[in-house]
Nucleic acid binder design. Structure first.
Length: 458
RNA sequence: GCGGAGGUAGCCAAGCCUGGUAUGGCGCAGGAUUGCUAAUCCUGUGGGUUCUCCCGCCGGGGUUCGAAUCCCCGCCUCCGCGCCA
């Protein structure tokens, strides 16, 4: 969620920022939020005034009871107005003798008036609560202006894509022919989008996880193996509501949700807490399976490992103080680049434009690896600085214990989603005989083997 | 699944039976003093705000002039037993 103080104090700047997303409905949301917020504060004042008066009376009663003088007590104008309709006789309270029974009668009359005012305020507060989370994060100035992914800006390209090889097989065909995966029976058992990995491909999956974890560990990231089911409450803090409809699997009987990425349980871990400055920046390497109902366009990549309902991923995540998040955003990106450089797979980095970026990120880089058979760059990692947007909803703050606090910043980036990395490796490293060379950085995790699979008939 | 104990500010606790407006310690911040970063003392410490105010004691209702306190409903955690890789 964005900072409501900015909505109040710098509406022009917020509006201009949101306008860059090229989505009229976002500006409409913002205006509705601004109006509702102002109205809520107005109504809140009225409630406060009524409650203040009630508190004054409640404090006066025991004093009068014990024989002390009541002292000067006047009905505030707003309270008198609120009482005029419900208890007209009490609106002229000063003419009544200041004894306990009259004090009680007056206080009792304030109750319903307060309830009316509260109901009005709560109705508006509910509007604010509904609108606020839907307003997207403010974008960094360096996000390129554009309407769709066509306007994303390539920041740099690493490596040299190989020319097409006529004999090369698609990764799904290669894996099936080599006995490394069983898509057909997985579809029968669990549905399309699931797979059985077999033999060397299982080892490759694990090797990629180990490679990413070791790589990140050596750079100061702590591995985290997370819960793969989350409760609804925490989940609402880490993602937007539309995801519940389209992306996430729900365990209905227990009101639990299968995580879509370890980013979610990691972010939820410190919900409501204050992170001590001495622990920041907190660099984490999440490891989990990921579950997603929505797997993209119909007829696209239906078979194979590229888009699946379940896959494994090592994820980078950082909690930090606001002033350090932009440097760390670049660090996260550099890590993913280092991982793919180690695998010797060409890639490019894309700065995702204002119209294509999601609601949570203030800036996002995508890393797109080269898929040799497809002869295309395709997304394998997504590197976001969420600034304080995610942490505000989760109420995660940073500071010294007992000292001053600020809303923390959160960042995340894929390290390696093994499914897509395996596709890239199968396409890039396959040989004409159907075997696949093992990238040298993975060999330590594959029993020093340099080849996987077995020769196939031509 | 059954039984028990709990949830109070950054942390730890008190207050609850007997309703009267959040008490102490630690930590942290600022100040005083002493030729030091020790000791001592003072002040402050959550959220909001239009700032002699409002809210805040797990959440939501209720009773009451007034609820951390009494009543009801929920959520969560811990301990024991059962089951279990």
């Amino acid at each position: 969620m964005i900072d409501l103080h900015l909505v109040r104090n710098e509406p022009e700047a917020v509006r201009a920022n949101l306008a860059r997303r090229k989505r009229p409905e976002v500006l409409e949301l913002f205006e509705q939020l601004r109006i509702a917020d102002a109205r809520q504060r107005q109504l809140g004042m009225e409630v406060d005034q009524l409650r203040a008066f009630r508190n004054t009376l409640a404090a006066a009663i025991p004093r009068v009871k014990s024989g002390q003088a009541l002292g000067e007590t006047t009905i505030p104008a707003g309270v008198r107005e609120a009482l005029r309709s419900t208890s007209p006789e009490l609106a002229a309270w000063e003419q009544l003798p200041p004894d306990v029974s009259h004090l009680k009668a007056l206080a009792a009359a304030v109750g319903p008036a307060t309830a009316t005012a509260e109901a009005a305020r709560d109705a508006v507060a509910a509007q604010v609560a509904a609108l606020h989370p839907r307003v997207p994060n403010l974008l960094d100035a360096s996000v390129p202006y554009g309407g769709s992914d066509a306007d994303n800006v390539v920041v740099r390209t690493w490596g040299t894509p190989d020319p097409p090889r006529a004999w090369a097989r698609g990764h799904a065909e290669l894996a099936e022919a080599g006995g490394l995966a069983d898509f057909e029976r997985a579809a029968r058992a669990s549905g399309a989008g699931f797979n059985y990995l077999l033999g060397d491909l299982v080892l490759l999956d694990l090797a990629l996880q180990r490679y990413a974890l070791e790589f990140l560990s050596s750079r100061g990231y702590t591995p985290v193996s997370t819960p793969m089911l989350l409760r609804r409450g925490p989940y609402e803090g880490v993602t937007d509501l539309s995801d519940f409809e389209t992306v996430m699997y729900r365990i209905a009987d227990d009101d639990l949700y299968l995580i879509a990425t370890s980013e979610h349980p990691i972010a939820a871990r410190f919900m409501g807490e204050i992170l001590d400055d001495s622990t920041l920046p907190m660099r984490l390497a999440g490891l989990s399976s990921c579950f997603r109902r929505e797997i993209g366009g119909h007829g696209v990549d239906q078979k194979g490992l590229f888009r699946m309902h379940q896959f494994n991923k090592v994820e980078q995540f950082i909690f930090c103080r606001p002033e350090e998040s932009w440097a760390l955003h670049e660090e996260l990106l550099a890590n993913t680049e280092g991982l793919y450089q180690g695998l010797q797979i060409p890639y490019r980095v894309v700065n995702v434009c204002t119209g294509d970026i999601g609601t949570v990120a203030a800036k996002k880089y995508d890393v797109e690896a080269w898929f040799a058979k497809q002869q295309a760059f395709r997304e394998v990692a997504s590197c976001s600085n969420c600034t304080d947007y995610q942490a505000r909803r989760l109420k995660i703050r940073a500071g010294k214990q007992g000292g001053s606090k600020v809303i923390a910043h959160t960042l995340n980036n894929t390290a390696i989603a093994t499914s897509r990395a395996m596709v890239a490796i199968l396409e890039q490293y396959q040989r004409q005989d159907g075997t696949v060379a093992v990238p040298s950085v993975l060999q330590p995790y594959m029993g020093s083997r340099s080849l996987l699979g077995a020769p196939l008939p031509p």
